[in-house]
Design a protein around this nucleic acid. Sequence first.
DNA 1: AAAATACCATACGCTACCGTATGGAAAGAA
DNA 2: TTCTTTCCATACGGTAGCGTATGGTATTTT
Lengths: 186, 186
Amino acid sequence: MPQTSRAKKLPRLDKRAWIAAAFAELAAHGWDGVRVEPMAAMLGVTKGSFYWHFADRDALFAAMFIRWAEGRVRAIRNETVDDADPRALLYRLIDLYARGPNTNGLAIELAIRGLTRSDSRAADAVAMVDGERLARVSALFAKLGSKTSESEAKAFLFYAFVFGQSLIAGRRDASLRAAASALIVE
Amino acid sequence: MPQTSRAKKLPRLDKRAWIAAAFAELAAHGWDGVRVEPMAAMLGVTKGSFYWHFADRDALFAAMFIRWAEGRVRAIRNETVDDADPRALLYRLIDLYARGPNTNGLAIELAIRGLTRSDSRAADAVAMVDGERLARVSALFAKLGSKTSESEAKAFLFYAFVFGQSLIAGRRDASLRAAASALIVE
DNA sequence: AAAATACCATACGCTACCGTATGGAAAGAA
DNA sequence: TTCTTTCCATACGGTAGCGTATGGTATTTT
């Protein structure tokens, strides 16, 4: 009875488990690395489970966009709810994005953004996240005294920097990043 | 005689034609979109031609990294040979990267940079290009009066901005980009 | 002109992977 | 306990695409 072997040992998977596996694969290998059968093997099931939860890979992608966007919006709201110094908050945000446990997060971010030109669902997810982020960071700059249009330009620069800095080869020491961050924040 | 049909009509392809087709596919679809048989069809030949010129896809990728790096280094050298105002030069560079005919160029750039973690040849190509670019742009900032460490930070910020700005959703009007550019350059 | 070189077309074998259909088993509800 | 729902395993069919081998032809060299 091969079928009882897994069911006896591990709880049933839900959609979340599959989506989490997909994000891990996305971070490591990009969109074409998100494959049903290899992921099934990793999760210790067969693709029967996958196709119960999702109509096809495309449905998985759609779920990923939504999950990612909701998570990112929730995160920026949590991260900017603090009443601390806006300046310190901005530096902390850069640190969150630029280093620490966010290597996968940034890879996922870049992968999703890479799809915005060809998939409107990705574009919608990104628009939702960016709208919230730019508004929140712009408000922080406003608290530091910038006028509206300058706050918006700084927020734009802030996020462009966050995404772009990870792509540059060479020295990655904290001092260069800190110096560049200061050019934005101060 | 099916074999004479193309040879009679079109000149023979060389490596360059194949590499150019690969870059177009890379820009449009990413690395997994760079496929031998579809490209052959687009070029009006069969894969016999491809496998005469390249051992396999991997050899094509290697050639692409080298071609790209040489082209980018050549370009930045040409673009910064001018004796014009360093400030105007910096603005022109941003424009070159951020708009105009560089949509494909930026997509290729991001695709190659996306591989640096998993392919040392890509990492080498990127390191070569970034070294040249950061040095050149840093020198421009030095001409504007910045000290060495500040010039380097500004050059880092400059390129992070160039790569990142294309990834941000929402308003893409020239005024926001110009305002952000001014925060870097002025 | 003949020989050598460069280029290309086609056939072939293989496989990773997708999606579909069907039946089985676990878990939940009545 | 029985029935229903949820979840999963497996078999199947199909194919896009890779790389290899072989033969043909155009172009260049001698």
